Simulated scan of single mutants.
Amino acid sequence: MRETLPDEIPIRPTADVSAGYEALPYSRRCREIWRRGEHLLIGVSPGNSYFSHRRIAELVGWGSGFFERIDIVYADLHVATQFETFGYTPEHARRRAAKEVKATARRIERGVEESGRPCPVRMHALSEFTGDDHYRRLHRQAVEALQTDPAYRTAAENMARGFLAARLDEGLAPSEAQLAAGVRYITAELPFFLDTPALLGVTTSVSCYHLQLPLTHVLFGRDEGLRAAPGQAYAVVRPAAVPSVPPLPSLPARAA
């Protein structure tokens, strides 16, 4: 039997803590989908040092206590374009992107292997879905909403700025070309925040990340504009803060 979350699992800001990680479903609906325990999606970006093979192994092992199936999707679209906006030649950008994507795939494979595969785990490159009708529909919605949904556009651009900050010198703002490339990268991933069930053939799904994202409220916290499908949830899943444990008091010496 799979582990179930206690009734008092929080919506925000406290958390369920298990095996060194804590889960914060964004809303009541997200919590209800989490409790169903059907599917967890882990998204991994190339070049993100957070997702070491050890972290992936821990996440898979931890997630299998709650979910029947786990899928890992790693981004491999528009990576070279971003390098070009930072001054790489097209050929160098392609080589650099291919290297990062390949290294990411290797880390995922190693992490899944080291996890012991306690539940079914599948990994996918994002590019595998570009010919899928559901992906095309969802991606088109994400791109078109940039022109019609100001709150969504602002959140997407803020998310891109946060992503680009790691590649820029401190205090520098991204150029228009860099910001546009960042938004294209994000909209390519958005179908898995909008409707993973349609893409992977599951009833419900929880997409997780270790941070609250600028797009979270837009997609999961309002009743208008671009938003996630009813079967889609989002949760922050991050290493739990472990309180320090005071040392045990010394025991009195035994009498001889």
Rank of each mutant, 00 (worst) to 15 (best):
T203I: 03
A125G: 07
A80H: 05
R31M: 00
A97N: 02
A229H: 14
R94L: 14
V143I: 14
E91T: 12
I42H: 09
L226A: 06
G47V: 10
R136Q: 04
D169T: 12
Y234A: 02
G47D: 03
P174N: 10
H124P: 03
L215A: 11
T203E: 14
T154N: 04
A142W: 13
P13A: 11
A181H: 13
L164V: 08
A19W: 00
P46R: 12
Q147I: 01
M159R: 13
M123Q: 03
L251S: 09
Y74Q: 00
S64L: 08
D16P: 11
A97S: 04
E84K: 08
S205Q: 09
H134L: 00
A256D: 14
P247A: 00
G162S: 04
T154S: 11
R117S: 04
H134G: 03
T148M: 00
E68G: 15
E114P: 01
D223Y: 02
E176S: 12
G63H: 13
Y209C: 03
A105S: 08
V121R: 02
V202E: 11
G171Q: 14
H124E: 07
A180C: 01
V143W: 09
L164C: 01
G171S: 12
L168Q: 06
G65S: 15
R254L: 15
P13L: 01
P249K: 00
A180K: 09
E22L: 04
R107G: 00
R35D: 12
G116H: 03
H53E: 15
